[in-house]
Design a protein around this nucleic acid. Sequence first.
RNA 1: GGCUAGGUGGCAGAGUGGUCAUGCAGCGGACUGCAACUCCGCCCACGCCGGUUCGAUUCCGACCCUAGCCUCCA
Length: 460
Amino acid sequence: MTLQLHDTLQGKKVPFVPLKEGEVTMYLCGPTVYNYAHIGNARPAVVFDLLARLLRRSYKLTFARNITDVDDKINAASVETGKPIDEITARFITAYNDDMAALGVRPPDIEPRATQHVGEMVAMIKTLIDKGFAYEAEGHVLFDVSSDESYGTLSKRDLREMIAGSRVEVAPYKKAAHDFVLWKPSTPELPGWDSPWGRGRPGWHIECSAMAEKHLGTTIDIHAGGRDLVFPHHENEMAQSSCAHDGAPFARYWLHNGFLSMDQTKMSKSLGNVLLVHELIKTIPGEVIRLALLSAHYKQPLDWSDETLESARRMLDRLYGAVQGVEVSEADRAAADVPGDLIAALEDDLNSPRAMAAFFALAKELNKATDDRKRITLAAQMYASGDLLGLLANDPEEWFAGHATGDLASDDIEALIEKRNAAKAERDFETADIIRDQLMAAGITIQDGREGTTWRRGQG
RNA sequence: GGCUAGGUGGCAGAGUGGUCAUGCAGCGGACUGCAACUCCGCCCACGCCGGUUCGAUUCCGACCCUAGCCUCCA
């Protein structure tokens, strides 16, 4: 089975073949760092982290995820808070990486920042002007959409219809309504760089084109991002890059994740239903959030609710419950492989729900197995699968001990369990039940197993 | 209005031209001193109307509904 990916440009699922055998380049549109990432921002980070993990099994992957650190929203945040721009961006870059790490997102190979690539952007803009794809007007440089015949193919838009239905007010310096800004002038108090067109700052789209070119080459294998970026962001990137490169394709596969809604409604600040990852991870284990995000196929819309999280938490309890108590050595882990059906599910356009079904099948097999050797092998396979999915990274004992609020110390719990077991041995069930109720009241659940009594915080 | 995705059981969410998704919840049973965990079994389904077919939830067409994009946005 080879990897199949749904390519937005072709509009269908196609076999993945990298440009260079054995090597893959991937670019993901990362955050604009003016605020904490919300749960919707986390979806592409998690989903394409999973893709990166899958790709690394078979290819030498170079994965870049950019940081947009020059943007009007950042400028606005600076004015609003009175804090310097550098301070704001530095703070939210750190927060973003910490928050994503909590969700099991591994750092990309390259994390290019827009402000460190202005020179490359200026060079690309010059090239576009020289080749007749861009023009200067009133201190702005604009991309001339009419010069690019293939404009609109990614988002499947007919330019004439778009112009007819346009609700946008056309800036006076534009030749045509859909020409977009490559470079714009800056006022003295705003960030700016010297350029052939005067002091200014780049438009939004050019940074990705310039940084992808610099770090990944003229044509990249995979370009990923949220659905909403298809137009105009990716359409414009594609136009800039392929025009600057004499028609060479910008990306060979375009991947876009679906939107996340909150209790059936769009997440938006005005509705006050924006969930920040930074806040969520204070009370909810990152793996629970990650699993919730992977519980739907990445292309599908995903509705986020308390039930989504609760269900994900119970799913993880079940998975951790299966491996709990099985001693798996480093050697066992090293020898283990991920089951074929789980790989096959992921290779089918990253079908994470199907992969989870395979994961649960493995857990069930482990729960049923009685032979110690077999149990170790299966548990090792579960850990190997977890490594691929970014789950099961905690020690099972810590998992069950960790995620709750009870104020009873672990030692006290162990002592009470010993007392209860002593009572049970004397068939004094009344005392045993009193102790169990006592623990239950403190949020501790007791489980009598063949190899002794285990406990977990939380009910269930 | 245009474009792009969708509409599956109580919920979440895969998939398929004729036999099981999976998980959570619920029900019955086993295990247990009683529980919990676990196991076994069960319940509940494919928006609507036509068409193709021996047979469609799955293919085709119309319709209804939903979401996203068309303006900064993952």
